[in-house]
C-alpha cells in the first residue's frame, strides 16, 4: 500500500516535496491510463522520490482546448493551474503525458508559470543514472519491442533518446518502425482529435500507424503518452491483434521487468 500525498497534505505536514507529479486528465480518469499513473507512482516510490500530486486541485493543462482553438478556456485552466502551483512554490514538475510536458515547458512561462519540467521517461533515466532505480531483470531480454514516438515528446520537443534508453536498460531488442523519430507518424489523437470523430477519409490514422508497428513483428508496442496508447490499443483491436501484440507505456515496461 503506497500513500500518494497531495501538495496540500505535504504543505500541512510541512514537507518540502522535490517534485510535483502532474497526473493529467487521462492519467487521473481513464482506466487504461491510470495503470500508467500507478506504474510511475510505484517507480517513484521504489526510488524514494519526494513527490506529491495536486489531487483535486489539478486541472486540465488546457492543451486540447488551446489546440482546438478555444484560447479563452485554455487561459482559464492554465492560469488557475499556475496560481495553484505558484502558491505551493512548485519548482519542478514531472508528467506522464507529453502534452502536459509541452504546456509547462513551452506555453506556461508566457503566462507567468516557470517551472523545471521533465517527462517521466527523462525522470526515470535520471533515477537510473543516479542509482536510485535499478533495472537489471531479464524479463524483456531480447524481446522485440517497437517504440512509437509521441509527437509532443519527439518531433515537437526533440526528445527521442530518453524512452529508447529505458528500453535499452531492459536489454530488449528495439526494432524501429520506418517512420520514427523526427519522421514519426502521429497516432491521430493530437490537436484535440482524440475528442472527436475523424474527418471523412479512407482510414483512421491509428490504424495506419499500428499497421506499421505490426510490420516490425514486435510483440510489444511501447510509447510515452496515454493518448497514443489508447489510439494504438484501438488500432490493435481494429486489426484483431490484441492476442498477439500489447501496447504499453515505458513506465509499465519498467515496473513489469521488476516483477511488480
Amino acid at each position: 500500500m503506497i500513500k500518494v500525498k497531495t501538495m496540500a497534505e505535504a504543505a500541512a505536514e510541512g514537507i518540502d516535496v522535490e517534485v510535483l507529479y502532474f497526473v493529467g486528465c487521462a492519467g487521473s480518469f481513464d482506466p487504461r491510463a491510470q495503470r500508467i499513473t500507478k506504474a510511475f507512482a510505484q517507480l517513484m516510490d521504489i526510488a524514494n522520490v519526494s513527490y506529491a500530486i495536486l489531487g483535486k486541485e489539478e486541472m486540465c493543462t488546457g492543451d486540447p482546448a488551446r489546440r482546438a482553438g478555444n484560447e479563452f478556456l485554455f487561459q482559464m485552466l492554465a492560469n488557475q493551474n499556475i496560481q495553484t502551483m505558484n502558491n505551493y512554490g512548485v519548482k519542478k514538475i514531472v508528467t506522464t503525458c507529453p502534452h502536459g510536458f509541452n504546456m509547462f515547458k513551452n506555453e506556461y512561462p508566457e503566462l507567468g508559470g516557470t517551472f523545471e519540467v521533465l517527462h517521466h521517461t527523462q525522470f526515470l533515466n535520471m533515477l537510473i543514472d543516479d542509482g536510485k532505480l535499478k533495472v537489471d531483470g531479464d524479463y524483456y531480454k531480447d524481446k522485440k519491442i517497437t517504440y512509437h514516438d509521441s509527437c509532443y515528446l519527439g518531433r515537437i520537443n526533440g526528445e527521442y533518446d530518453a524512452p529508447r534508453n529505458l528500453i535499452h536498460h531492459l536489454k530488449a531488442d528495439l526494432v524501429e518502425m520506418n517512420r520514427c523519430k523526427s519522421n514519426g507518424l502521429c497516432c491521430g489523437a493530437g490537436g484535440a482529435q482524440f475528442f472527436k470523430e475523424d474527418e471523412p477519409g479512407e482510414k483512421r490514422i491509428n490504424v495506419e500507424r499500428i499497421e506499421e508497428a505490426l510490420d516490425t513483428k514486435a510483440g510489444i508496442v511501447a510509447s510515452n503518452c496515454p493518448f497514443c496508447i489508447t489510439m494504438l490499443t484501438d488500432g490493435i483491436k481494429a486489426k484483431d491483434e490484441q492476442d498477439n501484440v500489447v501496447v504499453l507505456d515505458v513506465a509499465e515496461l519498467l515496473i513489469r521487468s521488476m516483477g511488480e
Binding site: M1, I2, K3, V4, T6, V23, C25, A26, G27, S28, F29, Q34, T37, K38, A41, Q42, I53, G55, K56, E58, M59, C60, P64, F195
Partner: peptide, 16 residues
C-alpha cells in the same frame, strides 16, 4: 477535466 466525470481526480490513489 476533458471528460464529464463522476469520480474524483485522485481516486486512483486509493487503489495503490
Amino acid at each position: 477535466a476533458v471528460w464529464q466525470v463522476s469520480t474524483e481526480r485522485d481516486a486512483w490513489t486509493s487503489e495503490m
